[in-house]
Design a protein around this nucleic acid. Structure first.
Length: 572
RNA sequence: CGAGAUGUAGCGCAGUUGGUAGCGCGCGCGGUUCGGGACCGUGAGGCCGUGGGUUCGAGUCCCGCCAUCUCGACCA
């Protein structure tokens, strides 16, 4: 490819609003162009990267026995009503009417379409296990896209769905997919990625793992134990609370005036927030009150609470339930019937804490859990915080951040049951197959590689997914020797099957060299009057910066070796 | 969806108390340079986001709307 003809431009300034490294470089190096919030076009180099990543994904999915299919982007309302998701999903699902007035939607995930394809097609246990997958555009009407390709509305995704006749079969297949995912990320050149236990959300099912690129710019919070290897998304992470020691004292009611929040009460009584117990109030979908108590230095984990309540929850209007906002406490609390009360493990064994007196302007002091909260069950409803210990091995936990680059779920029978998919079994009975589903966002993978490997000069592509393997920069193309030799070398590279980006522009050396670094090809080849005088070409490795000279006669073989070595190094 | 900010040339930005629209980069042409974003000359390129209002006159002041970005909520 000749750079003079390549669609897209390299720009010097950091585009307005771009903050993430990957976003900045993708824009500056001419890989993407924004069309609307969260909607991008991929320019030729980015499309080449995307296709290389897709090829790796296909190889791994095919190796698992996966069969590539294509589901529709647009689906009718009825299909999603079968699973119940037409109603349970809110604005993120983009709905519209076709010309006949029929309700349609844009696919944001394809469980329904997968079951639709498999039901009455896959009919016997003899056809199982089977896995179908596609690589296709998804649309999710995100409330807030951000970070270039990291969080978008429209994106290319590989999604796979497997069907099984037993949990054991799903378990073993799930493990194989898990291993394949590790290989995929490794092959696209990522190193700093991990898998964490995660929440299965409304996908249903129990077991779920997320693959995360560990980076400070990530939007997910992760909890990691460096000793035993425990890794979990903050949403589901367990931790052992930090203990607060204190001798039991006599219960008192104290005036606290207008002090309502934990900060205000702590300031008023001159105590630490670890010596308080706060209440957080929610309402279930059916309107029942949920009161959660936890120590003042911990925050509520709404996902854990929702799981205990077995309902979606939203912040409650305390007045509606006759509660005194700011003075709600776990002693002498009168609640409506049907109300749920939960106590976090951080309160267990806690002495001498302050909690609301359930009347305006008063709090209780010196409350003791063992004395004043008898017959109370303690649950895990708090977010892990810095300094907590691992619930598996007791080591101090590390909190970090990550970008979700893939996820795998055990779906169970949620979709096969609701949609009525059945297969016949050896004994003549029928069963609803157990499903697994497995996703990878391609665009996010592109951005993740840049996040991990990009340096102060620009993108650094791994050889396996670089849009071109070699960036060829002849300097002084106006020099007749350089021109003749450069075009000769270019042709030889093409003939040898090397993917080469040829900078045939009549621009200064500085422009060519900085552009090559910004665009990130793994190998740069420079020829100039200087190197030609020695009969050599200069090779520079983008990642290491290593530079050396090779004779023209050896250049092609040297490049082929380098390409091969680098691929092998990544894929091992 | 809550909070904050920004919309002026392809990109980055300036535009004073309201008085006919500017700079840098990029792009075209001519020339001199040329191994780390060269220089000179010369061109092209704007419904100042949008609708209304105030005014003799609005990029500038007022109101509405739209778009985009950032933080948060949400994120199947």
């Amino acid at each position: 490819m000749k750079l003079s003809k390549l669609v897209g431009e390299r720009i010097k300034e950091v585009p307005n609003g771009a903050q993430l490294k990957s976003h900045i470089y993708l824009l500056r190096a001419g890989y993407i162009k924004q069309v609307s919030s969260g909607i991008f076009s991929l320019l030729p180099p980015a499309q080449r990267v995307s296709q290389k990543i897709q090829k790796i994904i296909r190889e791994e999915m095919d190796a698992l026995g996966g069969q590539e299919v294509l589901f529709p982007v647009v689906m009718p309302r009825e299909l999603w009503e079968m699973s119940g998701r037409y109603d349970s999903i809110q604005e993120e699902l983009l709905r519209f009417k076709d010309r006949t007035g029929h309700d349609m939607l844009l696919g944001m995930t394809h469980e329904e379409a997968a079951v639709h394809m498999a039901m009455n097609t896959v009919k016997s246990h003899e056809q199982l296990p089977c896995m179908i997958y596609q690589i296709q555009t998804k649309y999710r009407d995100e409330a807030r896209p951000r970070g270039g390709l990291i969080r978008v509305k429209e994106f290319t995704m590989k999604d796979a769905y497997s069907f099984h006749t037993s949990q054991e079969d799903l378990d073993s297949y799930y493990k194989k997919v898990y291993d394949a995912y590790n290989r995929i990320y490794k092959r696209i050149g990522l190193k700093n990625f991990i898998s964490v236990r995660s929440d299965s959300g409304i996908m249903g099912g129990k077991v779920a793992d997320e693959f995360m690129l560990v980076t400070d710019s990530g939007e997910d919070r992760l909890v990691i134990c460096d000793k035993c290897g425990y890794k979990a998304n903050m949403e589901v992470a367990d931790g052992v609370r930090q203990e607060v020691e204190s001798e039991e004292q006599e219960l008192q009611e104290v005036f606290t005036g207008n002090a309502k929040t934990i900060e205000e009460v702590c300031h008023f009584l001159e105590i630490d927030n670890a010596h308080t117990v706060k209440a957080v109030c929610y309402e279930t979908e059916s309107g029942e009150l949920v009161v959660a108590f936890l120590r003042g230095d911990y925050d509520i984990n709404e996902k854990k609470l929702a799981k205990l309540v077995k309902s979606e929850i939203k912040i409650a209007d305390t007045d509606k339930f006759g509660l005194v906002a700011g003075n709600i406490g776990c002693v002498n609390l009168t609640l409506p019937e049907n109300a749920f009360v939960f106590y976090d493990l951080s309160i267990k064994g806690l002495n001498n804490f302050v909690t609301g007196a359930n009347k305006d302007e008063y709090h209780f002091k010196n409350v003791s859990a063992s004395r004043d909260l008898q017959d109370v069950k303690f649950d895990d409803i708090a977010l892990v915080k810095e300094g907590d210990h691992c619930s598996v091995c007791g080591e101090k936990l590390t909190l970090t951040r990550g970008i979700e680059i893939g996820n795998i779920f055990q779906l169970g029978t949620k979709y096969t049951k609701t949609m009525g998919m059945k297969v016949s079994m050896p004994d003549g009975s029928t069963m609803e197959p157990i499903m697994g589903c497995y996703g990878i966002g391609v665009g996010r993978a592109i951005a993740s590689v840049i996040e991990e490997k990009g340096d102060e000069k620009g993108i650094v592509w791994p050889m396996t997914i670089a849009p071109w393997q070699v960036h060829f920069c002849p300097l002084r193309l106006d020099d007749e020797n350089v021109e003749v030799i450069s075009y000769e070398l270019y042709k030889k590279m093409l003939d040898a099957g090397i993917e080469v980006l040829f900078d045939d522009r009549a621009v200064s050396a500085g422009v060519k060299l900085t552009d090559s670094e910004l665009m990130g090809m793994p190998i740069r080849v420079v020829v100039s009057p200087k190197t030609i005088a020695n009969g050599t070409a200069e090779i520079t490795m983008r990642e290491s910066g290593e530079t050396y000279y090779v004779s023209f006669a050896n250049l092609i073989n040297e490049l082929l070796d380098l390409i091969d070595d680098q691929k092998k190094q990544i894929e091992e």
